[in-house]
Every structure is written in structure tokens, then in C-alpha cells.
Design a binder for these strands. Structure first.
Lengths: 162, 162
DNA sequence: CCTGTCTAGTTCTATTTTAGAACCAAGCCA
DNA sequence: TGGCTTGGTTCTAAAATAGAACTAGACAGG
């Protein structure tokens, strides 16, 4: 009776959620973007149980989203830093933030905001465009399931999945 | 010992995850974008336990992401449809999909893809730009925590949170 | 060296959540 | 009427979680 895994799914959304789709993981990643790097940073910021935090950090390191590095201050502990794979989650966090701002707060209710470091200006909305640069809505898209066995032996398949 | 809630957080990411941050919710929303609307659709697509699915659908209706409507075929059941709030999750799902495609598949491993319905072309990457239209990276941003009591009584606060 | 403290965990127990299957009720179908 | 499908609810066992207690290593003071 283990929790179901989507590791084998052909849907990229399912596989992504298999790694980052539980209760704490994206909050830990959020804090990592926010500059936190130590066990105690995350623990006090989130109020998460130590045991769970330990397990989550281990999982994030295992799947290559965080890496453990020796601290620059030479202390006995180590730091958890985002890898490139982890840093690539940024648009997802921005999307969550923008959706949350719009749909999870009363008008006028204060919340933290994401700004450009140099100018202090609010970050604009994520843009999703069609081929001609027009805004893209969900209804204009569809998911094309993978065919039974589209193996395409050999000749330049790299360009397809980029 | 209830699971921790982020309902009160001042961080929009935390509040968003409080609604959609559990194991199944975003997969249900994904399927809803994919055109599924009935209990049995979700159940057979996801292989989720009926009890959990029932609870999740109820939760999604409660928080306004799905709504229950009578079916167009006049049957006895009802359909679950995305509300505007639910449809606004589209960029997040696209972000998850794009991250998953890049980081959760071997090169050449087949996966479903998101295309424009009319042209069949792949959807391009989510864009996040700074004020002058340049691509924005995480390192160029920071989160500004809300001040102690930034109430700003009265005069046109609506524009601030839009 | 001995003690205390700080950090980063691990271990423990009680509670909650989940998976999976069995059960139930309402509507159709013949 | 009985059987089938749909859309759930209920039940049990296993897994995850919260919270607190415990451990281990580094360092600091005396």
C-alpha cells in the first residue's frame, strides 16, 4: 500500500509532480530561492517537523534539485543549494505565486511580492504565447499522447525533445 | 496533529500550495484541462482510490477550482468543470510540463506533448520578462516581505493587487 | 580534559492520510 | 422485478505526518 508513484507516466506533468508534488517540497524550494541554505533555516522558516524536513531534503538531493556543499564559513554543517535542475523550477514558483496573489487573497489583503532586485519593480505576469506571439489560452491547446512505439531509430531525434 | 495549513501565510506560494499542493489535486486539474469531467473519467485515468478522489473533488469544488454542473446529456450524474479560477492554473501546469519534459525524461524517451489545437505545433516555453522585456532569472529577483501593517486606508488600493 | 552548547539530524509514539476493496444507493434497461 | 452502471461511502491496513525526545559531531570556555 505504498503511495502511488507516477515515475513511469508518459506525461511530463505527472513525472514532475512525482518529484515535487508533495506537501513540503515546493515550499522548501521556494525558501532555497529565497536564499535559505541550512537545515535550521528551512526548519524555522517552515515550522516543519525535523524528521520530515530531513527526508525531504534527502529526496531533493537524490533527485538532483538540491545539492549539498560545504559551507563557505568552514563550519561543520553543510549547505543545501539549488542545482540547475532546481533553479529551472523558477517559472513554476512564479506561476504559483501569481495565481495565489490573484485567487487566494482578499482584495487589499497584504502579501509578499516578487520584485526585480535592482529596480524594486513588481515582476510581470508569466507569458504563454502561440507561434505568432499571441497570448495562449488553455482552450487553444491539446495534449497529444505519445503513439504506441514512436521509437524513430537513429537519425537526429535530439531536436524533437528539446 | 493535523497536517499543517498555510492558509494564513502571507506568501502567495504557500497559500496556493495549501489548495493545490497535495499528491492528486494537480493531476485532477490536468485531466480537467484534458477534457475529463466525470468521476469515472478521473478515476480510471488516474487509478486513484475512489475515496480519495471523492474527497479531492469535494475540496476542489469547495475552493472554487471546479464546479459541479448538470451534464449536457441529461444523465443522472453531474460534471466537474474548471471555473475561471481553475482555468487560471494553466500556466502552472504548462510550467510543470515543460520542467518535466526537460528534467524527468531521458533524451529520446517518448512523452505526451502540448500542442496548439489548430496547427499541431508544440507550445513554446513560458516567458518571464523583466520590465524591459529581457528574460528574467531567479537571481535577478527577490521577495519583498510584507511590512508590519501596510494597510493604506482608502484611496485606490485596487490597482496594487491586480 | 570535562562540560555545555549549537547544529543537524534520527528515533519514537500518536494521529492522520492513503490505498484498496467492499459496500450502498439511485437511475436506467429489459 | 432484477441486473447493470454510475457515483459515491465505509472499512481496514499500511504509510506519512507532527511533535517531542534522543543522538552525534564540532566548537567554546574553564
Amino acid at each position: 500500500m505504498k503511495r502511488k508513484s507516477m515515475e513511469e507516466a508518459e506525461c511530463p506533468v505527472a513525472r514532475a509532480l512525482d518529484l515535487i508534488g508533495d506537501w513540503w517540497t515546493l515550499l522548501i524550494v521556494r525558501d532555497a530561492f529565497d536564499g535559505m541554505r541550512r537545515f535550521s533555516d528551512f526548519q524555522s522558516s517552515l515550522g516543519i517537523s525535523r524528521g520530515i524536513l530531513s527526508a525531504r531534503l534527502k529526496g531533493l538531493v537524490d533527485c538532483g534539485i538540491l545539492e549539498m556543499v560545504p559551507p563557505e564559513d568552514g563550519g561543520a554543517h553543510h549547505d543545501y543549494l539549488l542545482t540547475a535542475k532546481g533553479a529551472a523550477l523558477f517559472p513554476i514558483l512564479v506561476g504559483l505565486r501569481q495565481w495565489g496573489e490573484t485567487h487566494c487573497f482578499e482584495p487589499g489583503e497584504p502579501h509578499s511580492i516578487l520584485v526585480e532586485r535592482t529596480t524594486g519593480r513588481r515582476i510581470g505576469p508569466l507569458k504563454l504565447e502561440d507561434a505568432s506571439g499571441q497570448p495562449l489560452e488553455a482552450a487553444m491547446t491539446e495534449v497529444r499522447k505519445v503513439a504506441a512505439a514512436p521509437v524513430r531509430t537513429g537519425r537526429k531525434r535530439a531536436a524533437q525533445n528539446a
